[in-house]
Design a protein around this nucleic acid. Structure first.
Lengths: 152, 152
DNA sequence: CTTGAATAATAATTCAAA
DNA sequence: TTTGAATTATTATTCAAG
């Protein structure tokens, strides 16, 4: 198992679980057949710049880095607001209609964001298909997209 | 010294210093005449939802929470892009000219962002004055504003 | 309700090894 | 270069007290 594969799995785990400490990652990885120690997870966190953030209820959880994707985020917000036509969802999928020509840009920006919910994206001239990692992930991403559209 | 005063000071300290651990706060607070222990700082961090983020160079630093201000951030980015005319700076001050009518909105949004660099803002019809906590803080904020303007 | 002292829990790093 | 074991450093929490 290579480091990068493990880090991909960590990203997925983050999308589907409330991770409160590094040992949670150790255990979840073990379930997936990946045997590593807390030390390794700590290094992964550092490399991936994952954050331990104080939650509202007083606990803690790990989360994706925010700044790294902020510029892509702004571009995406703007682009998707400008080009959005409609959105449909089903299972793991989000299907977005955009004005002709914008499909590839939006799909690319969605990729760049490296949302943990996103398994992959595909954009043709006027459509974007987003394949999510799970149905719950799809719901989360749907919410995010709706939030983006709120600010035109 | 009330808790809230201390937390305000912590916000300021965050703007001017590279804080790597909670004890740094303890020491800097001591310099300011505020005597507290790491335990108290830990509680403050939790309440303020301050983050310990892995830095690029491999170290760690504390930082303001990102999500909380994300919507204001989008609005600000958009509004400032749309209304920006010019910007001048001096000492702790940033003086932004905007198209008539936009001053108060931009000033308000800047407030809402709760940037640690910002001491206060003032907006008239077509101008926004931002008073920063320090000259270094002003430089940092200037950079942020320039980044916002990059995406029109 | 807030705090410090002490402690427990968690995370980062060192060091040897492969 | 990457890792685990052990260690150290750091952070969170408990518990008693103001």
């Amino acid at each position: 198992m290579k480091k990068q594969e493990r880090q991909n799995i960590i990203r997925q785990l983050l999308a589907d679980h409330e991770i409160k400490k590094q040992e949670d990652f150790v255990n979840l990885l073990k379930e997936k057949g990946v045997d590593v120690t807390q030390a390794t997870v700590s290094r992964d966190m550092s490399e991936m710049q994952l954050l331990k953030v104080p939650a509202q209820n007083g606990g803690y959880r790990y989360s994706m880095p925010p700044q790294k994707t902020l510029n892509a985020s702004r571009k995406l917000q703007q682009t998707i607001s400008d080009s959005f036509v409609s959105m449909r969802t089903q299972d793991n999928f989000i299907f977005i209609k955009v004005i002709p020509g914008s499909g590839p840009v939006v799909a690319n920006l969605l990729e760049q964001m490296a949302f943990p919910e996103v398994f992959g994206t595909l954009g043709d001239d006027s459509s974007v298909l987003v394949i999510c990692t799970a149905e719950t992930a799809r719901e989360q991403l749907e919410t995010k997209i709706n939030q983006m559209l709120q600010f035109n």
